[in-house]
């Protein structure tokens, strides 16, 4: 089955997070025949917004003109989302769980993304970092 995709491009401005949230929900709600429930939609919205704000806030090379690209792909068995930014990225394997005893002020973002999605990995090339996430359909 051919995949369908939605591509969103925007500059490094946190005001775009509302747009990202809205598009994330619309993409999920447009998926037919996969028994998409509200918790699926909520999880995707949170994961995509976290990934985008992470790219905008933490990527050291994210100048205001930096472009963030989000690609939603509806596949047969899952929704796959790529969030690409021009920063150097990070090593997912070296992001530890938040210290739930100390209750830190930061460091919840990747934990939330991993909690919301079924697959999370990152890809790097010379110019970009891409966080690739997928959430499986129930049927």
């Amino acid at each position: 089955m051919e995949s369908r995709q939605v591509i969103l491009k925007f500059s490094n401005d946190l005001d775009y997070l509302r747009l990202v949230a809205g598009v994330s929900r619309l993409v999920c709600q447009a998926i037919k025949g996969k028994n998409i429930q509200e918790d699926f939609v909520d999880a995707v919205e949170l994961a995509v917004c976290e990934a985008c704000s992470n790219a905008m806030v933490h990527a050291p090379y994210s100048a205001p003109s930096a472009e963030i690209v989000v690609i939603f792909q509806v596949l047969q068995d899952r929704l796959m989302i790529q969030v690409r930014d021009p920063g150097p990225g990070f090593d997912l394997d070296h992001v530890s769980l938040p210290d739930f005893e100390a209750h830190p002020e930061t460091g919840y973002g990747i934990y939330l993304i991993k909690s919301m999605m079924d697959e999370v990995e990152n890809l790097k090339d010379e110019k970009h970092h891409t966080l690739v996430m997928a959430k499986h359909f129930l049927v």
Binding site: C49, T106, Y108, L112
Partner: peptide, 9 residues
């Protein structure tokens, strides 16, 4: 209706 890691922080 929405909170993220920055809000928690």
């Amino acid at each position: 209706d929405f909170i993220d890691s920055s809000g928690l922080g």
